[in-house]
């Protein structure tokens, strides 16, 4: 087996043995969605004041693409950077540096596992939404998948900036959680994008999670693509990935 395949398998094993990571990746987005669906009152009412492009939708429908954004962000901003921070703290990166393949591959392996688990978390959320919340499958699945991949790249790049510098798992986790809570607001977890006051919606469009959730919502409900937000996602991905790669600390 190649080095990368073995490292990825090891990362997968370690993931299954970490209950916090399993919960954050696979269950947290769905739990949040179910709370919005069944505990918060009025979410099955039709959208009001969201403009003509969201006519005919229920409030809870708007929360479904947001749940996918949360699935991406949770893994990207907590699990991913704390794993890398832990490897730096424990000297795993240095130890792997003294092997013929070097330490780069464990970053790739961790990135692969993060991408796989955030996708799985999103799949659990969508399945739950269809089964329990009577959600409809998006008409343009290909477009949704494409936006999802771009969104995952944007948020993993943001997580990579934290991962590049954090001295320990705890530092990475603390910083990542702070970012996650802040950005859940802009993603629309408390007020979905279409229902935000215009000023907040406009500001949110220029944040990584806000842009992602707005583009994903448009793709999901087959509305016109918000090109500015799409450009914002691409720009963040390039900038974050470059910063992470340039500032990565091996020790």
């Amino acid at each position: 087996m190649t080095a990368l395949a073995t490292l990825t398998r090891t990362e997968a094993t370690l993931f299954t043995r970490n209950p916090t990571n399993v919960f954050m990746a696979l269950l947290f987005p769905t739990v949040l969605l179910l709370l919005q669906g069944f505990v918060i009152p009025g979410t099955d009412a039709p959208v009001e004041g969201g403009g003509p492009e969201f006519a005919g939708l229920r409030v809870i429908d708007l929360f479904i693409p947001i749940a996918l954004t949360v699935a991406m962000a949770t893994v990207s901003l907590t699990n991913f950077p704390s794993a890398i921070g832990g490897y730096r703290e424990n000297g795993v990166l240095r130890r792997l540096g003294a092997t013929p393949v070097g330490a780069h591959r464990i970053l790739l392996a961790q990135l692969a596992i993060s991408a796989a688990t955030l996708t799985a978390g999103a799949a659990v959320a969508v399945t739950t939404a269809i089964v329990a919340l009577d959600a409809s499958v998006p008409r343009n699945l290909g477009l949704v998948a494409l936006v999802f991949v771009l969104g995952a790249a944007t948020l993993l790049s943001l997580g990579a900036v934290v991962a590049a510098r954090a001295r320990s798992a705890q530092t990475a986790n603390g910083l990542g959680t702070l970012l996650l809570i802040g950005s859940m607001f802009t993603a629309g977890v408390w007020t979905p994008g279409p229902l935000m006051p215009e000023l907040f919606r406009n500001i949110s469009a220029f944040t990584p999670l806000g842009a992602t959730s707005q583009v994903l919502t448009a793709a999901w409900y087959d509305r016109p693509t918000p090109w500015i937000q799409l450009a914002v996602m691409v720009a963040y991905t390039v900038v974050f990935a470059t910063v992470a790669a340039r500032t990565f600390r091996w020790k």
Binding site: R17, G91, V92
Partner: peptide, 16 residues
């Protein structure tokens, strides 16, 4: 690193 095996003074592995 095919010639030299290096045991570092401070290096741990993931606990699980």
């Amino acid at each position: 690193y095919e010639l030299i095996g290096y045991q570092l003074q401070t290096s741990a592995l993931p606990p699980t």
